[in-house]
Design a protein around this nucleic acid. Sequence first.
DNA 1: GCCCACATACTTGCATACAAGTATTCGGAG
DNA 2: CTCCGAATACTTGTATGCAAGTATGTGGGC
Lengths: 235, 235
Amino acid sequence: MATSRDMRISISERAAGGARARGRVYTVLRDAIVSTEFHPGQRLSESELAERLGVSRTPIREALVRLRDDRLVEIVPQLGTYVSRISRQAIDDAQFIREALEGAAVRVAATRARPEDIAALDAIIARQREAFRDSDIDRFYFFDDELHRSLCDLSGHGVAWSLSQRASGHLNRIRRLSMTLPAYIDEMIEEHAVVLDAVRRHEPEEAEHALREHLKMVVSAVPDIERSHPDYFES
Amino acid sequence: MATSRDMRISISERAAGGARARGRVYTVLRDAIVSTEFHPGQRLSESELAERLGVSRTPIREALVRLRDDRLVEIVPQLGTYVSRISRQAIDDAQFIREALEGAAVRVAATRARPEDIAALDAIIARQREAFRDSDIDRFYFFDDELHRSLCDLSGHGVAWSLSQRASGHLNRIRRLSMTLPAYIDEMIEEHAVVLDAVRRHEPEEAEHALREHLKMVVSAVPDIERSHPDYFES
DNA sequence: GCCCACATACTTGCATACAAGTATTCGGAG
DNA sequence: CTCCGAATACTTGTATGCAAGTATGTGGGC
């Protein structure tokens, strides 16, 4: 029947929009946690969050359940909801996931990148240098994500980036905290340039290796962060 | 203070348990979808599911939201919830994710596997042959998962398996459907043996290559399934 | 016979009410 | 002063009620 086919089309068109309140709440809470505006270990109250965000407990709960999947909060029945403390195992897991997924993606990206794609990537790095010059950490963080996301998109598997992101909550808190140290930012930009050069020259092996090395740098910041914020960590 | 440290411990102990109704509903619904007991394209009613499972709409909703993250259902506001039709892009994405994650995991597993680990893996393959001999597809499917999960666990990053699974909903429907064909099962078992041999000999490169080749076999079944169930697929 | 308009019955999204259970705190006894 | 117990004020989990919106079926007009 023709109707069923029409319905299918209208469905996929509308599903893309998604819900409004639920998605908004999830994004707001996730940002607050990753930016450590909500401190690791802090207790969260569903009712208080509902009041502050101007919605009822229902969308708050649905967002918290998603955040639990991300291991960013721990929900204990009849007791409370807590921002997860940063876990070394979770960092290690996220690092493994990122290297595997983004490494595989950049390998494909290196074989497929067209000149205009590379120009777009160059532009992103230029913006990173700008943000660094202006000491605008939030903007740098944004364009850092943007670069990695673009590389995944180029591979034809944008889902690699979304998955990597959802798995990288603990790691991203380290990223954000490490960006308060200018030395890290400077080195990050140079490493981005190395990755991009390998992509430009269509060298998949080299690109993957450079990216994996680059990703390892985030982990190297852990001891510094652990020293300055010991209470943010587990056990 | 000592209290806060004690609290932390009790929290992590209890968080492991998790909720009962919500988790149960999610598992039941996911199994129903992946086994195509719920047909791709089928419309689901929150109220009907609530009645059938003996709970209210709330846990049903939370489970459906998780399934939407898995791309297994499409929720259209004020219209209805539908079991996603199998999407070629989703299959391709899942394949990419599985190869990247499990490939990286088996590489590590090959370097770390101790004799007793390998014995355990051998035992799983033996059970697969048993299930094959008894034509018990569900049991074979279970031990297939068990083998892949064990390999990921061996790498020290069990999370690779959970992520891979959550991303593989569309692919798993193909897996289940392809297992109705005995020829596929037989070949799968042999390929498992090849992977395991490489792990036994501590050859990471070879193990990853064999696993990636093995994973590709699932995709090769797509045209067959598409011919026998054209209405299960998108557009 | 065909087509258009309206009412109806459904859907999900959100808000609220109730139930079960825990930590804390306040009061009293020793 | 110390310690024990019960009541209280919270927490999350679940159930239900209401609002907004869409598809469908029915009845009337042409």
